[in-house]
Each structure stands twice: as structure tokens, then as C-alpha cells.
């Protein structure tokens, strides 16, 4: 039996704004610890991991592990119909994920479970020279600034500053932010702006974003709830010199 209840739909909604922009299908894996998913996009450019711990839910029952395969667009269409103060219940029957919104009315939606084309990837462990946190809004604004000039961004960090830089045909933009964190090495890599923007669609998950950057290494971008009961993490392959 699987049953999970949330006091509002916002974490699921904001997570799937990003997830549905990146992958077509996902497999939720549930057990007594909580609900998680790992997914890799078709081009193998972005990997994502969502972890929602059992304690995040108002009620959580999972007496045996389940694998729930769904189409992300179909799930997002349903989540978009939620109101921000609706209670959300997730459960299963033979062949369906059942999503119930309880507010002024009780609304029950069923989404057919699908066969997955691919087994979900296991999250890779990457050793990074740097890790630091910056405000989510600052990062999102930087990406919007960069968008004036280019479709790619150079992200770098040193002991003092986080920097975002882009150059284009008509000019360039340089953003600097004193991060106030303990970063001992310098690192810099270039990333697709479009791919970063997809991740930042999860704009209500966390006030801060934790970034790990290396030299020509993937970007790790992690959104964590203050309570540490939920994390949405992405890995993005860099653009590199040919």
C-alpha cells in the first residue's frame, strides 16, 4: 500500500515545472523512507534527482517499495489544476497513480502508469573542488541578465566571488557576487543558458541554491528545503572546447 498526503501542492508543482521541462517520463521509487526519483534526459545532458522524505508528508504509508512510472507532462497538467491551499493525496490502484486535491471540493485524478523505455540512471558521485550557496533569486536574475547577450554562460568561483559572464555580438555582461563561503580553489565552466533555465523553473523549492563548479566539469545545482526534508538536485554537462 502506498499513500502520501501533503498540506499543499507547491513542492510537487514547482519540482515538476522543472522536471517536466527536462524529461518526458519518470519513475518514482517509494519505500518507508520516502519518495525519490532519478532521471536522465534523452540527450544525456541533464540528470535530476528528487528526494522527498517521509517526514515531509502529513501522512505517509508505504509498506512495500513501489515503482511508479508516469508521463511527466500528464502529471504536470494535473498538478497545474491544484489550488495552492489544496491538500494533496497520492495513492495507487492497479495501473494508475491517483492524485486527489481536497479543498472546496474533493477532486480525484487518475494517471495511467506507463512502461519505461529506460531504467532510471543511478546518481553519479562526482568530487568537486568547490561548493557554495547563493540566493536563488540572485542566480535567476543573473541568468536573465546573461540572456540579453548569449545562449551560454561562463560560471566561475574563487575564494571571494561567484561570477557569471557572457559575451555577445553587441556587448557583454559581467555579474559578481561576494558569496561569503569557504571556497579554497578557483573553478570555471561554460553552460547552456537554456538548460540552466529549465532547472530554474523549480523557483519555489528553496530560497538558496547550492552550486558546485569545477573546470570543464558538470554543474551540480541543488535546491534544499530548510527542514532538509526535500531536495531537488540537478547535474548539467558543460559546454567544452572542441
Amino acid at each position: 500500500m502506498f499513500k502520501a498526503e501533503l498540506s499543499n501542492p507547491n513542492i510537487l508543482k514547482t519540482s515538476f515545472e522543472a522536471i517536466s521541462a527536462i524529461v518526458d517520463e519518470i519513475q518514482f521509487q517509494t519505500d518507508s523512507e520516502g519518495l525519490r526519483l532519478d532521471a536522465l534526459d534523452r540527450g544525456h545532458i541533464t540528470f535530476l534527482h528528487l528526494d522527498l522524505k517521509a517526514s515531509l508528508f502529513d501522512e505517509y504509508i508505504c509498506d512495500e517499495p513501489e515503482k511508479i512510472n508516469i508521463d511527466t507532462d500528464e502529471f504536470m497538467k494535473v498538478l497545474k489544476r491544484s489550488k495552492s491551499d489544496d491538500r494533496v493525496l497520492l495513492s495507487l490502484d492497479e495501473g494508475n497513480l491517483i492524485i486527489t486535491f481536497e479543498g472546496q471540493a474533493k477532486r480525484t485524478f487518475k494517471i495511467r502508469l506507463i512502461d519505461m523505455e529506460y531504467e532510471p540512471a543511478t546518481p553519479p558521485a562526482i568530487e568537486y573542488p568547490t561548493e557554495f550557496s547563493i540566493p536563488f533569486d540572485l542566480f535567476k536574475n543573473s541568468i536573465n541578465d546573461i540572456d540579453i547577450y548569449s545562449d551560454k554562460v561562463s560560471l566561475s568561483v574563487d575564494s571571494e566571488k561567484f561570477k557569471a559572464f557572457a559575451t555577445g555580438e553587441f556587448g557583454e555582461v559581467n555579474i559578481e557576487f561576494i558569496h561569503g563561503e569557504s571556497v579554497k580553489e578557483e573553478a570555471s565552466s561554460v553552460f547552456s543558458l537554456e538548460k540552466i533555465s529549465e532547472m530554474l523553473k523549480a523557483d519555489k523549492f528553496s530560497d538558496n541554491v547550492t552550486l558546485s563548479i569545477g573546470n570543464d566539469m558538470p554543474l551540480t545545482l541543488s535546491l534544499k528545503m530548510i527542514s532538509e526534508e526535500g531536495e531537488l538536485r540537478f547535474l548539467l554537462a558543460p559546454r567544452i572546447e572542441n
Partner: peptide, 11 residues
């Protein structure tokens, strides 16, 4: 001169 890499090397 520059291209999008993939994550394949990390799995």
C-alpha cells in the same frame, strides 16, 4: 569551436 558535452563519462 565549442560544443555541448554529455554526462555519459560520469555514469
Amino acid at each position: 569551436k565549442e560544443k555541448q558535452s554529455s554526462l555519459d563519462a560520469f555514469f
